[in-house]
Design a protein around this nucleic acid. Structure first.
Length: 804
DNA sequence: AAAATAAGT
């Protein structure tokens, strides 16, 4: 029997019981309560006006604050006023899966229908809809996928894009697509006799326009009745004008929310160390302010753990009665059981301090928060289109983000927000966060647009256009992968197949190649495992144990085979337990196994889901799923063929040079090849932290590259009068150059400098070979559009032969 | 010898 003090009653020591569970309210009482709730929402009073606005305008921007009920109510209003006629559906997109599910559940309940019937949701791996579904909640990424099969979105009469201000890549691409679809659909309705023609503003028909890919689709759909597509964009206030302008001055209406006032405080002086300032502020609030929990925004796991440690150290120095503070943490890679702890109320008389990343900005709503501490920084993805490298950097938040954060203090009552910077700094912040599409690799986006029939990517009407360099980089990558032809057309069947797979294009390519290399069984697993993050979980306090556990799975050939070992071992365990009757549930066994082996159960399950989904896809494509068994050479050759853009060669000092980018990189310590130092490797990830690291690495043979990826590791380039050969003699590479007269002179300059290895870049390339001593590029030469890099001090004129 | 923000098909 636990004593009173030990039992953790959330609000005191007396247990209460209610009889609600024994005595469910009647169906009618429940309906009545729901109706009352709906009527009490701020949005209820403007139902008629909103419906009229939608009828009047093809695009409507709705600016609504949290708690207005716009997400749950507007689709119901539209459904009630006839927007689902003729079996048409109202589609509502969300950036996040949980939101799509929870809102759909709520609306089904409000409508008094079974989820999946009139009201349903659809997210990856989960489709709870039926032919009778009229209000469909879904993720925006899923609607984009749907568009590949039905470019016209013909089943929808209205699309509501919720949380558009978040400007995820998916939202941005979707908006561009919707604008286009809407345009074509209304064209069809207004004048379906002039299909294929463009009308000028004065009504005359312009020349036949073959460039609009939707026209082709339109023709196919001529026989069908398609009403114009209504669009509703829901956004937070600061950004409404952006959407309005994008949609040709579309009307924006505002609906009121239910947000309590939040007092915002700034520091008087600029702070040099925001972690220290956060710490001081936590204790300041604790001693000076009324009860209420504190939410602190930090940038990542490491910061969170270090601040938590410091709080506990500081608490030890306080007198006993002032130690009534409890810390909880939340960030995405935290196992879900531990994530749940943030929702538990602090013990009576204690103040809960929530240390969170921006997961608490939008994704997770924690009750009880009265104070927010906002250091004004966030870890954000950034992209260098020249190097093709993504990295995470700490940057100032935007004004919109700061407002969003402070709003977290006013969900249940008036609150306070402490910004750890002076007000003058706030004024300098960007209005909104830079849209993600301008900060990421675009290969996936471009492949999808191409598959949707958008030929001119540079001319595509993005709400905000990514840089030319970024588009160019991704187009190049897609050409090299064979997804696009040299004329930038989607290739058939490879490009088409790649676009169909819900994967990074390079992984899709790996699957297609794997069926030829007869190792698709292995590649399906590898790609599924590479598509999820953090399979291995290494807590700081049990580092040695975790490493020992990992060694059981390690393959001497690299991380890809190691990941496959983990996956296969876990599947075997599941299968074995399924056949044993009366034992513990297989899921439970697996959870235990994961814990023992320091494997992230959530990630592993995600990999299983992806595996079964892409397996279905490749089967439909008619690819042959066979295993290479113990012949891992086949598998590694296939990796080389697919990931040739990520090949690296060892340099004398033990670092590696990535061939495509020329970057000097190191093997990440978490790789099984960390100490191995193989001559030639391929990798899947390039991250910049304290150093430039590569991760997920497998040993390959350098000669495979010219054999399996000649489109990139071209041996010859006659167009420039240079011919480079890699002749294989005595295990070394010999380089021949056949320069014309002009080039010969340049070459003499090279030998004069006693240059050694070469990086010849056909589009860029290649082997810095036989290097020793210093490896810095001592010279970079232009040969037409090509660059020749000269390293160190190795190549002598004897090694350097002219051809005949 | 390092350290992932969060979200999605």
């Amino acid at each position: 029997m636990p004593s009173m003090a030990e039992s953790q009653q959330p609000n005191g020591n007396i247990s209460f019981k209610n009889n609600r569970n024994n005595n469910k309210p009647s169906f009618f009482a429940r309906r009545k309560k729901i109706l009352e709730h709906r009527r009490s929402l701020p949005i209820a009073s403007v139902e008629r006006r909103l419906v009229e606005e939608v009828q009047k305008h093809d695009v409507l921007i709705i600016v609504g604050e949290t708690g207005s009920g716009k997400t749950t109510q507007i689709p119901q209003f539209l459904s009630d006023s006839g927007f689902c006629r003729d079996g048409k559906t109202i589609g509502v997109t969300q950036p996040r899966r949980v939101a799509a599910v929870t809102v759909a559940k709520r609306v089904a309940e409000e409508c008094g229908v079974e989820l999946g019937q009139k009201v349903g949701y659809s997210i990856r791996f989960e489709d709870v809809t039926s032919s009778s579904t009229r209000i469909k909640y879904m993720t925006d990424g899923l609607l984009l996928r749907e568009a590949l099969l039905d470019p016209y979105l013909s089943r929808y009469s209205v699309i509501v894009v919720d949380e558009a201000h978040e400007r995820t890549v998916h939202t941005d691409v979707l908006l561009g697509l919707l604008k286009k679809v809407q345009n074509v659909r209304s064209k069809y309705v207004k004048d379906h006799t002039s299909i294929g023609h463009k009308r000028a503003s004065n009504g005359t028909i312009l020349e036949k326009e073959n460039t609009d890919p939707c026209i082709g689709v339109l023709k196919q759909c001529q026989g069908r009745k398609l009403p114009p597509l209504k669009l509703i964009i829901m956004s937070a206030s600061l950004d409404a004008h952006v959407f309005s302008e994008y949609f040709g001055g579309a009307k924006a209406v505002r609906v009121l929310g239910r947000q309590f006032p939040v007092d915002v405080f700034y520091t008087v002086d600029p702070q040099t160390d925001y972690l220290d300032s956060a710490l001081v502020t936590i204790f300041q609030i604790h001693s000076e302010e009324a009860p209420g929990d504190i939410l602190v925004f930090l940038t990542g796991q490491e910061e969170i753990e270090s601040v938590e440690k410091q709080i506990h150290e500081n608490l030890q120095r306080l007198p006993e009665e002032k130690r009534n503070m409890k810390t909880v943490t939340i960030f995405s890679s935290l196992p879900s059981e531990q994530q749940m702890r943030v929702f538990a109320p602090a013990p009576a008389g204690f103040r809960k301090i929530i240390l969170a990343t921006n997961i608490a900005e939008t994704s997770v709503t924690i009750p009880g928060i009265k104070y927010v501490i906002d250091p004004g920084v966030v870890k954000a993805r950034s992209y260098d289109p020249v190097k093709g490298m993504e990295s995470l950097i700490i940057v100032p938040t935007s004004k919109a983000q700061a407002i969003q954060r402070s709003g977290r203090a006013g969900r249940e009552g008036p609150g306070k927000c402490f910004r750890l910077y002076p007000e003058s700094e706030y004024e300098k912040l960007e209005d909104s966060t830079k849209p993600e599409i301008k900060r990421c690799n675009l290969s996936n986006v471009i492949l999808q647009l191409k598959a949707l029939g958008v030929d001119d990517i540079f001319g595509f009407d993005f709400i905000e256009k990514p840089s030319r360099a970024a588009i160019k980089k991704s187009l190049e990558e897609l050409i090299l992968l064979g997804a696009l032809t040299d004329e930038l057309k989607l290739s058939d069947p490879v490009g088409r197949q790649m676009a169909r797979l819900p994967l990074d294009p390079v992984y899709s390519k790996a699957l297609i190649l794997a069926s030829q290399f007869k190792c698709l069984d292995e590649m399906l697993i590898a790609v599924a495992m590479l598509s999820v993050e953090s399979i291995f979980y290494e807590p700081r306090e049990k580092l040695d144990e975790a490493r020992t556990a990992k060694k059981c799975f390690a393959s001497s050939e690299g991380d890809h085979l190691t990941l496959i070992n983990v996956y296969r071992t876990s599947i075997e365990l599941l299968e074995k337990r399924k056949s044993e009757v009366g034992k513990e549930k297989p899921e439970k066994i697996l959870r235990k196994w994961c814990k023992e082996n320091f494997i992230n159960n959530r990630s592993l399950r995600h990999a299983r889901d992806i595996h079964s989904q892409i397996r279905r896809h490749v089967e439909q494509m008619g690819l042959c799923i066979s295993s290479c068994g113990d012949d891992t050479l086949q598998f590694r050759r296939c990796l080389a063929a697919a990931f040739f853009l990520n090949a690296a060669l060892k340099q004398p000092d033990g670092t590696y040079r990535a061939l495509a980018s020329g970057e000097v990189v190191q093997i990440h310590p978490t790789s099984v090849l960390f100490r191995t130092k193989a001559d030639c490797i391929i990798f899947n990830e390039f991250v910049k932290t304290t150093n430039k690291y590569i991760r997920n690495i497998t040993i390959i043979d350098g000669f495979w590259l010219t054999e399996l990826a000649p489109q990139y590791y071209a041996k010859q380039d006659y167009s420039q009068s240079i011919s480079l050969h890699f002749c294989i003699g005595t295990g070394k590479l010999v380089l021949n150059i056949l320069p014309d007269k002009e080039q010969r002179n340049k070459k003499n300059r090279l030998t004069n400098q006693n240059a050694c290895g070469f990086t010849f870049l056909s589009r860029y390339l290649l082997f810095p070979f036989e290097m020793s001593g210093h490896d810095e590029i001592v010279s970079m030469m232009e040969f037409g559009k090509h660059k020749l890099g000269i390293y160190g001090n190795l190549l002598t004129s004897d090694d350097f032969k002219y051809g005949s």
